[in-house]
Amino acid sequence: MSEIVKFTIDGKEYEGVKGQLLVEVAAEKGIYIPVLCHWKGVKPAGSCRICSVKVNGRFMAGCTTPLEADMKIENDTPEILDIRKAIVEMLFVEGNHFCPSCEKSGNCDLQALGYRYQMMVPRFPYEFERRDIDASSPKLIIEKNRCIFCKRCVRMIKDEQGKSYFAFKGRGKHLQISLDKKLAVTMSEENAHKAMDACPVGCILRKEVGFAVPIGKRKYDHVSIGTDIEKLNK
């Protein structure tokens, strides 16, 4: 039996199912909490921190925190919005995100958050760390310069025996995403596409496709990310 509990977001009262993840509860109510690593139905990673909200005065990740009775959630406050913008800016300086040359441009969630928060220039200095591009597998290009370490591919893309195609390598500033060379050889078309679609940025790309949709008709050319959720509230 699911238990219905009361809670508030930015002072407004709501009811929702106890135990549901905050980002999902909020989306149902037409409130957009941005996510980069979250994917509905997949074990939360809590790695991008963009969904940070304040719950009863404490910062929590909206994608890993289950709803409890009487939670007072803050989402749309100057403090939180500035933190989210800072995280977006940080991801832009940490990796090498050359939007003009990226196949995912216009459909990229990270870029879309940059648009939503009107990032004119990151407040942090650019790192410009050299990262590799792995194009050795038959179907995919792994453009590591663009990886934001959301772990969606790590969590979602497995073969029939449950073996991982993707995993992290190294730690800290040396962290990188890697694709299993042996498994990649026999990767199915379906998995290759699933991996590309799951990637919120332009790190995982199916070879020989891209730039199919013209500028002006892409996902985030005219409407901000989160609009689909927010229109429920209108």
Binding site: A45, G46, S47, C48, R49, I87, M90, L91, V93, E94, F124, P125, E127, I148, F149, K151, F168, G170, R171, G172, K173, H174, L175
Partner: peptide, 21 residues
């Protein structure tokens, strides 16, 4: 901290690089 951050959460991984600089 820059070396020892596990890296899986963005703020710790990246801010420690930035702050070290």
């Amino acid at each position: 901290f820059e070396d020892e951050s596990c890296g899986s959460c963005v703020t710790c991984r990246s801010f420690n690089m930035i702050l070290t600089k």
